[in-house]
């Protein structure tokens, strides 16, 4: 299925929320150093799959391995970003990153500073994150995800609240990170933004992987 060595493997993953199922037997692999776009209708199970890979949700059945470990054990190599910012609105960008760096055992400001510069923001900005524009907040959120320099980046609908311009900038940032060797899994329903940027398009439907193609046109019209 992939030409690169697999870095994430899902085997027959099932997830059920009470009377609703999100995944029914997903088996797939993601190769190292590739940019994957995960597409599909609402309720197709994209977000759930991503949360299981991130170690946030426990599958009802089946298993996921990341770098040969359980997602929880591999957490140092995973960066996770969601459509919610995962930042404290009342603190500035640097204050936020300083706190999250502590969670990874990082004591200095160097990593935070670097991450903020990488997403083209100013580390000295003292405004609380709540007063940022949507685009800036989204980039700060990305900075939080790459703070500990993970091998894998998981992004859940990162473009849901931002304008087209910011979204394109974000895609450029992500392709640069992919070129630097990171594996990127991006869940979205706005597939057109990723044309030419992503290496693989994984289409999900009704809790299963429907197809995996190299270009968007083959992935069906969305």
């Amino acid at each position: 299925m992939t030409d690169a060595p697999p870095i994430i493997t899902a085997t027959n993953v099932i997830k059920q929320f009470g009377r609703f199922a999100a995944l029914r037997g997903v088996s797939t692999e993601f190769g190292a150093g590739k940019f994957y776009a995960i597409l599909g209708d609402n309720g197709a199970g994209k977000t759930t799959l991503l949360r299981i890979i991130a170690g946030l949700a426990r599958p009802t059945g089946g298993c996921v391995s990341v770098l040969g470990m359980s997602p929880r054990d591999a957490c140092r190599e995973i960066g996770y970003m969601a459509h919610a910012s995962l930042l404290y609105d009342e603190m500035s960008g640097m204050e936020n990153l300083r706190y999250f760096a502590r969670l990874y055992g990082i004591d200095d400001d160097k990593h935070g500073d670097q991450a903020i510069r990488m997403v083209a923001l100013d580390p000295t900005l003292s405004r609380p994150v709540g007063q940022y524009s949507q685009g800036m907040r989204q980039r700060m959120s990305l900075a939080r995800a790459i703070l500990h320099d993970p091998k894998i980046l998981l992004l859940d609908e990162p473009f849901s609240n931002v304008d087209a311009q910011s979204a394109r900038e974000m895609v450029t940032l992500l392709t640069r990170m992919r070129d630097a060797g990171k594996t990127i899994l991006l869940v979205t329903h706005q597939a057109s933004l990723l044309e030419g940027a992503a290496n693989k398009f994984v289409r999900m439907g009704a809790g299963q992987v429907v197809e995996c193609t190299n270009s968007l046109s083959a992935a069906g019209t969305l």
């Binding site: 170690g55 995973i78 996770y80 919610a84 995962l86 609105d89 999250f100 969670l103 990874y104």
Partner: peptide, 17 residues
Amino acid sequence: ARELRNQVLDAYRVSPA
């Protein structure tokens, strides 16, 4: 409540803390 806003709790949960 503070950890639920913007789902910051998820950021804690994905970390090794």
